[in-house]
């Protein structure tokens, strides 16, 4: 990852009225970075992506992609972008093969070897009739179409919807491969696990506003760990609580506590625990979902 900024969104506003739309978006995506858009339906993920693609004209603000204005030079920025639209509808062509050939012509792609590799990887049968394809098949075809020109930037609007869990894994693998090649990826989803896996940063959008931009590094490598500890008898439970650990959740009914502890103090914890009759101890993982729910709860208050 370099510091070169590939996508720069400044004060982007697209107002559809009635508080719908997106308002004053600001974020930057660096070269080689994988950024996720997180948000419920109607939050503004697709609108943002359409603005970046130059399909919509911003009401205010400016988007530059590789130094080019996304609206004015819409066709120029497409040289660097591979795009999977949120709604999959193909042109009126007979088979997937014809469609991919046509896309190759649009993209001026002569060498189909990478496309064929993708087809194999996704186990796609492109000779099938485009209109009779299942949603998953269509999605795979769209993935191939977006990636076959080997673009520097990938903009993917909910690319995994319709894929079965196995294919989702295959797709994530492909993305990781692209990431390792230094591609910049912008991916929207409403599934935390997907974004957790590949993203460097995740932008949380709700009701047209950016609530938080989470750095996955910080979430994955926190110096604080949460443990859930249950004791076999009540006296141990009470005695443990007397030690000055940071209890974040207390369930007396089960003789259970959840504590938050700095990683450097882990040895101390285990030393202390040897004195008690512990039923079980487990780490409570800090996920993106937790992180965001914390933020939205705060926001809600």
């Amino acid at each position: 990852m370099t510091d070169e900024i590939v996508i720069d969104v400044k004060n982007l506003t697209k107002d559809y009225g009635n508080n719908r739309g997106i308002f004053d978006f600001n974020f930057q995506i660096k070269k080689g970075e994988v950024v996720g858009f997180m948000g419920s339906n109607g939050a503004g993920k697709t609108t943002t992506i359409r603005n970046i693609m130059g399909f919509l004209k911003p009401d205010a603000g400016k988007i530059t992609v590789c130094g080019l204005d996304a609206w004015k030079d819409a066709e120029k920025i497409k040289k660097y972008i591979g795009y999977i639209p949120g709604e999959i509808a193909f042109p009126d062509l007979k088979t997937g093969t014809l469609f991919l050939q046509s896309q190759a012509e649009f993209l001026n792609v002569k060498d189909m070897s990478y496309a064929n590799y993708l087809i194999e990887k996704l186990q796609l049968d492109p000779t099938a009739n485009l209109k009779r394809m299942s949603k998953g098949m269509k999605q795979k075809t769209a993935v191939v179409a977006a990636l076959m020109a080997n673009p520097d930037i990938l903009i993917l609007d909910e690319p995994t919807t319709g894929l079965d869990p196995l294919m989702r894994v295959a797709f994530i693998e492909i993305l990781e491969e692209e990431k390792s090649k230094g591609k910049t990826i912008l991916i929207s989803s409403h599934m935390y696990e997907e974004l957790e896996k590949i993203c460097d940063r995740v932008i949380l959008i709700d009701k047209g506003k950016i609530l938080n931009i989470a750095n996955m590094n910080e979430i994955k490598n926190r110096n604080v760990v949460d443990f859930k500890i249950e004791f076999n008898n009540e006296s141990d439970y009470k005695n443990f609580k007397k030690l000055k650990y940071n209890v974040i959740r207390d369930q007396q009914k089960y003789n259970q506590v959840t504590i938050s502890i700095n990683k450097s103090k882990l040895t101390n914890l285990f030393k202390d625990l040897t004195a008690f009759d512990v039923k079980f101890i487990s780490e409570v993982k800090y996920t993106l979902e937790k992180h965001f729910s914390k933020i939205t709860n705060k926001g809600g208050k």
Partner: peptide
Amino acid sequence: NNLIASQVDTGSMAYVLSTPTKRIT
């Protein structure tokens, strides 16, 4: 209708416009 509106409505125009093809083209 098929040439423009229908393609915008269904979204299949995205495949054309996500390539370096100008709208005027």
